[in-house]
Structure formats: C-alpha cells, structure tokens
Design a protein around this nucleic acid. Structure first.
Length: 492
RNA sequence: GGCGACAUGGCCGAGUGGCUAGGCAGAGGUCUGCAAAACCUCGUACGGCGGUUCGAGUCCGCCUGUCGCCUCCA
C-alpha cells in the first residue's frame, strides 16, 4: 500500500485516505470526562491516535488535532435519577465541580505526557463552549429536528432518515430492545437530550432560551468539532463503545444542523479503537476493574507486582493493532519490557558502531526498510507490523556489525530510526537519560570498578568478583563479560 | 432479543490464497571460574464441519466459543 488506508467504520472497509483539502488533515478525537484518573484503556486509545497524527505529519500533512475535555458531567444513568458524574465526584472529594475538572485535567495531561503523547493542537472544554452548543440547538429547533418539552430539548430522531447508519441500527429495533426507562416527555424512545433542565440542587448549570439547564452529552462534540474543524472534516476518532449512541447522535445533530450530504459529510472517516480487557472483561472506569496509569507508574495496584516504565506501556500498547482488543496481563507487559529492552540494547550498540570510523561492510538498503515500515503504517496504521520491521532490522544490522561488517551508511539507518521509531511511533529509546556531567562521572566510576573486578578475577578471587557483580546488579547495573572485555548497562 | 467484532504454536501478537512475521518464554550448543550477555540451531500453529480452488490460517456457508454495543464509558 503506497497510500494511507483507513478502516472506516461508516463503510466497514479500508479506504484510501483522501483529505478534503490536499495536504491538510483535520482530526477530532473524543477526549476524557475528567472526574477520575486515566487508565490503560484511555492510554490505548490516545496512544493509537497519537501515532495516527504523528504518521500524518511524517507524511508531510499539516494536521490540526482537536481533542475535547468533557468537564460538564454526563449523567450516571439515562433516567432523570442520574447524577452528574463531576458533581458526584465533587461531593466525594469536597471540591467544587470545576476544581475536580481542573485537577483531573491536569493529571490527565501529566499521565499522557509521560506516555510520550503529543498534546492536541486544541483542547476545547465543554464548559467553555456553552454558547456554541446553545446556538446549535437553536438551529436544530428551527429546522424541525428538535423540540422543547418542559425545559428539556430533545433531538427528533424520526426527522433524520440517516439515523443509525454508523452503528447499523434502525429505530424499530432500538425501541423494542431498549433496556432503559424512557423519559416521559420524549416523543420517541430514541430521542436524545440536547439540553436538560436543571433543578435547584444541580450545581453546574447555565441560562438558556429554555431556562436554566445544562447541555446533553453529545452536543459538545458537535459544537466544538464544527468550531475548530469546520462543518465537514476528515477524521473523527474515539473508542468503540462510543460508536453508539454518542457518535451516531453526533452525526445526526451535526448533519441536520449543517445540511451535510453524501458529498459533504460531517465526517469522512470514522475510526474506532478497540478495548483493553482484563481477564477477558473490558476495562472500564464504571466497571471498577480499571488500572490507572498512575498505578502502573507507581506499581500501586493489587494486580501489579511493581512499577512499570511509561515507555514500556506505550511499546506494549502499540504491539497490538488499535482495532484489536489488548488483553492486559503483567506477563504480557513483562514480555513487552524484555522486547523493548533488547531493542534498546541493540540500538545503542548500533549508535556505538556508527561512531567508529571503520565501515567496510555492505550498504544497508534503508529505502527498503523505510518502505516496509511505511507499508505497515499505510495499512490502517499497523503499528505491530511496523515495530516488527524496526526490531528485525536493528537486530540484523547489529549482528552484521558484531561480526565485523559495519555498513558505511549506518548513519542513514539511524536517521531513519530517529524519524520512524522516534517521531512516528514514539518508542525510540533515549541514548542516555542522565546529564552529560553525571554520565561522564558514571562512566569513569564504572571503568574503575570493572578494572578492580578484572584484577580480582585474574587473581581468581571469585568471591570479590562476584560480590561486585551482585552489588551492581542490586543497583540496577548488569555486567556483561565477553572475550573482548566487560561491558555494563542499566537494567530496566 | 437486536447490531457488531474476534477465534493463530507455552504466552503475547502480525498475516495481501502458494514462499520465515515479530516479541517473550523454552530446549541444545559455542563462550565462561561460575553466571549473565552475545552468537548458532530448534517449534511445521492457525476453534469445529463442509465447500470453492491445482493449492486456504487467508475466500464462502454452517456450527461452537469469547467479547463489545444497545445505560455513563477511550
């Protein structure tokens, strides 16, 4: 595949990506509701879309990446019994709802930064776009797609013949199969709220033409995506569980408000990532089986025996395709860690070989490697295959270097790896994480220690030699003896 | 009940009808004071039953199983 192909949920097929405006990509991804810490499921989703954005940029597209923050809580259930999730959390933590939103927004970004995710270009807050949402609702009422009912405003699903096209549902089935109690003031059971009336106890509320209330949980994405990407844009992403009802409702609202048609659809490509599962069950905040990223970073969860490096988590997630479920187990994480560690070791060896002046081997066909990696990514962002290409390449080249054949264009390969493993996949191990000064000191000290151990070994003082090795091991440093001498590396 | 996915060797996980995915673990060997590392060698896997085909993990049908959505959710 020479061009980027995307699996489009709308057509349920892989399609060649054609931007609306040549050279530009507009992408909107549903962001988190900020009433708790992000967990591994969020990480899979956002790491996946992070790579999508990075790859488009690598292919010289100008990308505008919009990801919202939902800081107007959705209801905990669909009846009017439900409580705003942010309001609930604010009661639990005895904080203002906006303090909750601010706190978890900050924590969200901290957690995602550590995973190496690029920040979106625009991160609009739902609470900061109430006027836009109200304006959109007014248009929908004007055009006969919505109606007011006692301070609530609902979208009239029967007014939209295309309703259900994304999720493959029709209204009759939805009606008979529904498990939820339908609010009494709806005309059709599938009608969904655009605006909800707030009672006195409700803390987050705003004035509107229909009285004091708060927006429904789909309209924010429609209003904000339109504001920053236009009435028709390229890609909309999100978790599979948002396909219905959230994205279905977004399409209905936006298309009816804008008058989109087949030639000018609201969104060209819908991308949905699959779930992270835990013992076969979906990991979810409300299911109570979620392990937060912080818990991974700190090792503070019953299912975790220790802390895990964010880079390893990213590597682990990208080793499976975004549309496949990722079944989490510590064993699987461990395998990813070893794999990543070997990749780092091999790569660092290549960097060292590149510094040496000898280069008498045969050239590496970097273009072929690049092509392999790009083809994997062009095929609906197959990160697992792309990683395999990089790992295999690094391993093979290193092997030939070890046997004395150093390719003259090793720098070219390293440059490609910087771009692909680094800029695109974000899994390029850093050469050294410590400062220059510390690095020099450590190198000197290690040289000294290794020298002392060498003497001990020459005197067959195995006890001293092994003590040095064991103590270094405890400090996280592994010694590797070889006929050529002893090398050391940090373990992770 | 409706809609939609997925089932690959010990584990994770790619897979465009014919040619080695990859990673982890494991076995044997070289090296080594021992170990680790490194290097070499080793696995003929595709849920079941039919069908299409010269040839199917890859296409079609049926069955079984698992999961997701239909309620907030990445």
């Amino acid at each position: 595949m020479d061009r980027i192909h995307i699996y489009n949920t709308l057509s349920r097929k892989k399609e060649v990506f054609k931007p609306i405006k040549e050279g530009f990509v507009g992408i909107y991804v549903c962001g988190p509701t900020v009433y708790g810490d992000a967990h591994l499921g969020h990480a899979k989703s956002y790491a996946g879309f992070d790579v999508v954005v990075r790859y488009f940029r690598y292919q010289n597209y100008r990308v505008r990446y919009v990801q919202n923050i939902t800081d107007v809580g959705h209801l905990t259930d669909d009846g009017d019994e439900g409580e705003d999730k942010l309001a609930k959390q604010s009661r639990l933590e005895r904080l203002e709802p906006m303090e909750i939103a601010e706190k978890y927004t900050n924590r969200y970004f901290e957690d995602m930064d550590r995973l190496g995710l690029l920040r979106p270009d625009i991160t609009p807050r739902a609470s900061g776009h109430i006027p836009e949402q109200i304006a959109m609702i007014e248009i929908l009422i004007e055009r006969g797609h919505a109606y007011e009912s006692g301070g609530n405003v609902y979208f009239d699903v029967t007014s939209d013949p295309n309703y259900g096209s994304l999720s493959g549902r029709n209204l009759d089935e939805a009606e008979s199969g529904t498990r939820i109690q339908t609010a009494g003031d709806k005309r059709h059971p599938s009608d969904f709220a655009l605006w909800k009336k707030a009672d006195d106890s409700h803390i987050m509320k705003w004035p509107s033409p229909w009285g004091v209330g708060y927006p429904g949980w789909h309209i924010e994405c429609s209003a904000m995506s339109t504001k920053y990407l236009g009435e028709s844009f390229d890609i909309h992403g999100g978790g599979l569980e948002n396909q219905f009802p959230h994205h279905e409702c977004e399409i209905a609202q936006s298309s009816c408000a804008h008058g989109n048609d087949e030639n000018h659809p609201f969104v060209r490509y819908w991308m949905h990532n699959n779930m992270v599962t835990l013992e076969g069950q979906k990991m979810g905040k409300s299911l109570g089986n979620a392990i937060s990223l912080r818990q991974f970073y700190e090792g503070s969860h019953d299912l975790l025996s220790r802390a895990w490096d964010p880079q390893v988590i990213r590597f682990f997630l990208l080793q499976s395709h975004y549309r496949s479920t990722t079944d989490f187990s510590e064993k699987a994480l461990e395998a990813a860690e070893r794999g990543f560690s070997n990749f780092r070791t091999n790569l660092n060896d290549l960097r060292r070989f590149a510094e040496s002046s000898e280069s008498d081997g045969t050239r590496i066909d970097v273009d072929a490697v690049r092509k392999d990696a790009e083809q994997a990514m062009n095929d609906d962002f197959n990160t697992a295959r792309a990683i395999a290409v990089l790992i295999t390449t690094v391993k093979n080249v290193r092997a030939s270097c070890n046997s004395g054949s150093i390719p003259p264009n090793l720098d070219e390969l390293l440059g490609f790896l910087d771009a692909f493993a680094g800029d695109v996949l974000g899994i390029l191990p850093e050469p050294q994480s410590e400062s220059e000064a510390d690095s020099g000191l450590t190198d000197g000290l290690m040289e000294l220690i290794i020298e002392l151990r060498k003497h001990a070994r020459q005197e067959k003082n195995w006890k001293t030699a092994d003590t040095i090795r064991d103590r270094l091991d405890e400090l996280g440093i592994a010694l590797k003896d070889s006929p050529a001498g002893t090398e050391w590396e940090r373990k992770r």
